[in-house]
Write a protein that binds this DNA or RNA. Structure first.
Lengths: 146, 146
DNA sequence: GTAATACCTAAACCTAACTTTAGGTCAAGG
DNA sequence: CCTTGACCTAAAGTTAGGTTTAGGTATTAC
């Protein structure tokens, strides 16, 4: 069993954030002795899952729902699975989107590199979009695909 | 030249957002005739860039900085390039992070699939982490790597 | 015994990025 | 004329996810 301060240290989070998560219902079974929170293995695992789900773009209220399902037992396996499947699909499309934005950035980096060498953008503008060098053509097309 | 309503329609954004962007200085050269905003090609291209930079996680105030540099001419090519390079690095690490979270999700989906078939998590817990099937081992290890 | 820590709460505050509201101008249509 | 619709502004409101503050308790250190 750990105190809030120890857990804060372990996860590199301020204690206030852990209190906030608790208040939002993210630790449904969290116990206390004389008012003081006792974090056990269940809560540490919950925190690991919370970190993942936050990276996956999930809101606190949905994470709470998941934690409640966990506390309810095997009858909620299907809901939990469905939630993860939905998140997985959402994230895959998010990553695809970000890769497109990244291609735009790659193109812009190349573009300014050329502009710096040339001293202006004029020569460059004549190259776009039909006379781009091979090295950057893919990124350009990917970034501008609708 | 387009009115704010036309641009809003073209980009699928509310006009209030375009006014907000303008107020934040995202269209430094935007002209008006008798008070009414006139969006030209420069502004449409700016909006495309804004959409990209927002996906790249950039804040409005940094996007404004970029737009100001564009308005200043060739002397700011190096700053602009540096900004894109920094964003590119940031995004690459973001995407790597998200891929780790995605592996955790893949593992969880598999896990609940098994739990539903078994009716409980008990058999499953005995498999983790050393007796996982090959198909999911990679995702598990990737998701739990520090 | 008293001072420093670590914990607790409720409630106010914060930030970003919008959105909504309230009130006003102007041109076209009936 | 007068109403409808598209534009304008400033300012207030909204949401999420915390963070900070103010005040209180309980344990340990000197």
């Amino acid at each position: 069993m750990y105190t809030i301060g120890q857990v804060a240290e372990m996860f590199g989070l301020p204690a206030s954030t852990l209190r906030y998560y608790d208040k939002q219902g993210l630790f449904p079974g969290l116990e206390r002795t004389s008012g003081i929170r006792q974090f056990g293995d269940t809560e540490l695992e919950a925190l690991r899952v919370i970190e993942c789900l936050k990276k996956a773009g999930m809101e606190i209220k949905d994470i709470r729902l998941f934690m409640e399902w966990c506390a309810e037992g095997p009858s909620t396996y299907p809901q939990r699975k469905a939630m993860f499947e939905e998140r997985k699909a959402h994230m895959e499309s998010e990553i695809a989107n970000m890769n497109r934005a990244l291609d735009m950035l790659r193109f812009k980096c190349w573009y300014y590199e050329q502009a710096i060498q040339d001293g202006s953008e004029d020569r460059l503008e004549a190259l776009i979009p039909d006379n781009l060098p091979e090295e950057i053509k893919g990124a350009y097309e990917n970034a501008h695909a609708r």
